[in-house]
């Protein structure tokens, strides 16, 4: 257990520069906007006094590094500023919207993992079969399909034609889980397809390699059945590949959420970014992007630690 703790500590330490860089980029978002940030923050019809007030409030007259540090300190205290449009605290806005996005992301990750890994396993254990042909031929197509196009296709078929799922909107999971899941299904599927394709293809090739390895021959020689070989040794040996892919998928799902939430009119964090950006509500954009970055970093940290726990070769490196 000591080694695990040490590993976590080391990973956290390695994360530090990444966190600094990510927050700096998010902070600079506002600086990169051409023109006087105070002017932009104040909005189109602000008075001179209001602009000056904002300049003081945000400290735009101070050196950049000081500004960054004080912003960072505020962020650490959970203060992401206030919305220029509504005047509400940014954190509050994000927290209202985030559950919808997280539901879609987690849901689509589960779909992708179950379907993608199953397809990959079927293809790897039946090389040359119809499943295998399907996985290898459609996998590249699935990766290339734009998710919004797929989303429109899904809505047209399953919502408008077959009336199996609602076409738009979201419901809070805490109030009615069944209804929330029904609403999240089409967006989750639209997001999942690309991940499924990638997972199936990678599962297939990683598993084929494992199953033809010397140690699998040893397992057969000691009398182990095909199920134990596949599910215990096979999956365990490709778990690092799978987890790494799932980690990358999380990154992709959150960036994909921006588009998908727009298509399905879902009040999530993705559509919040889009809406705020259009309306120049920069503190909200900044706060949400920061939140996404934090989630992605935490997910990758978790993947790293799990990988090290699952595979001694990773832990040693």
């Amino acid at each position: 257990m000591g080694t695990t703790l040490r590993l976590v500590a080391r990973r956290l330490w390695q994360l530090l520069p990444i966190v600094m860089f990510a927050t700096l980029v998010v902070f600079l978002l506002l600086q990169l906007v051409p023109g006087d940030p105070a002017l932009i923050l104040a909005g189109d019809y602000a008075s001179k006094e209001r602009i000056e007030e904002i300049r003081q409030l945000y400290g735009f007259d101070r050196p950049l590094i000081v500004q960054y540090l004080s912003w960072f300190l505020n962020v650490l205290h959970g203060d992401l500023g206030t919305s220029l449009l509504s005047g509400a605290p940014v954190l509050e806005l994000i927290m209202q919207r985030m559950p919808n996005t997280v539901l879609i992301a987690v849901y689509s990750l589960i779909i992708a993992a179950v379907v993608g890994i199953t397809l990959g396993v079927l293809a790897a254990t039946r090389v040359g079969s119809r499943v295998d042909a399907f996985v290898t031929s459609t996998a590249s197509l699935g990766v290339a399909l734009p998710s919004f196009w797929l989303a429109i296709l899904l809505v047209a078929t399953f919502a408008l034609q077959l009336h199996l799922f609602p076409a738009t909107g979201a419901r809070p999971f805490t109030v009615n889980p069944g209804d929330a899941i029904r609403h999240a299904t089409l967006p989750a599927v639209a997001l999942a397809v690309g991940v499924i394709a990638e997972l199936a293809r990678q599962t297939r090739s990683a598993l084929i390699e494992v199953l033809s390895s010397q140690y699998v021959r040893t397992l057969r020689a000691k009398g182990l059945g095909p199920m134990a070989i596949l599910w215990k040794h096979g999956l365990r040996n490709i778990s690092v590949t799978l987890l790494t892919l799932l980690g990358l998928a999380v990154n992709r799902l959150f960036s994909g959420a921006v588009v998908i939430e727009a298509v399905f009119a879902i009040p999530g964090a993705g559509s919040l970014v889009a809406y705020s950006a259009i309306n120049k509500d920069f503190p909200v954009v900044q706060g949400t992007v920061l939140m996404f970055a934090v989630i992605v970093i935490l997910v990758n940290l978790t993947v790293d630690i799990l990988n090290a726990l699952l595979d001694p070769r990773v832990a040693e490196e």
Binding site: S213, Y215, R217, T218, A221, H233, R236
Partner: peptide, 22 residues
């Protein structure tokens, strides 16, 4: 399968790769 590993067992050439690494 009941014979393998129980009545007849086998040792292979490459000890480096013949054991499951994980």
């Amino acid at each position: 399968r009941e014979v393998r590993g129980r009545r007849i067992s086998m040792v292979f050439q490459e000890p480096m790769s013949a054991l499951d690494p994980v």
